[in-house]
């Protein structure tokens, strides 16, 4: 089964239809997604700014990791739960949205950044833990995170707009390719 076929199947399920058509549940889930942004991205930004040496420079990075990252993780769980529900309510259009796809690409890059930092950079924290100005490999991770999450917020917000929707044709060939639109050949 292709992903598009899977989304079509999902779209027809009772749960997806109910959430999509509900008067209050959908706006409530969407608002929660925005509010948890304050927790998740907010705490992520404070962590990134510490890595960049722009705030809380007296706090060792390992202390930040112990005390701040649990809030980031809790926020991430809430963002994922509400985000999955939002896609579940509108699966086909979301799957064929250029903004959603750009968001997924950036999410994967952000995940790689997190994995690299925790696997290769943080284990050496003893060498620079209390420095106000951290090594470039550490600052780079903070900068990458800031740029990636900013992009993810902008792309996420733009999913709501239909500029590049598949049912609005003609679109540039790149858009139809990137969005995976199924366009009938011109007569």
């Amino acid at each position: 089964m292709s992903l598009l076929a899977f989304c079509k199947w999902l779209d027809a399920t009772a749960g997806s239809t109910a959430l999509r058509e509900s008067l209050f549940m959908y706006p409530l889930v969407e608002s929660s997604h925005v509010l948890f942004l304050m927790l998740f991205v907010g705490m992520t930004v404070m962590w990134d700014l510490r890595l960049l040496g722009l705030t809380l420079t007296n706090v060792p990075v390992t202390v930040m990791a112990d005390r701040v990252l649990p809030w980031v993780r809790a926020g991430f769980v809430a963002m994922t739960v509400t985000g999955v529900l939002l896609s579940y309510a509108i699966p086909i259009r979301t799957y064929q949205s250029v903004w959603f796809r750009a968001k997924v690409v950036f999410l994967i890059l952000a995940a790689i950044n997190v994995w690299y930092f925790h696997a290769r950079v943080l284990p050496n924290a003893a060498n620079w833990d209390t420095d106000a100005r951290l090594p470039w490999v550490v600052r780079r991770a903070g900068l990458a995170s800031l740029v990636l999450w900013a992009g993810i917020i902008v792309f996420g917000r733009f999913i709501a707009y239909n500029w590049f929707d598949c049912d609005i044709q003609p679109q540039p060939a790149f858009v139809n390719w990137f969005a995976g639109c199924v366009v009938p050949p011109p007569q």
Binding site: V34, L39, G42, M43
Partner: peptide, 13 residues
């Protein structure tokens, strides 16, 4: 929205 995220971090911490 980006500013809201910044506000969230600066307020919540």
């Amino acid at each position: 929205l980006l500013s809201l995220s910044m506000l969230g971090g600066a307020v919540l911490i």
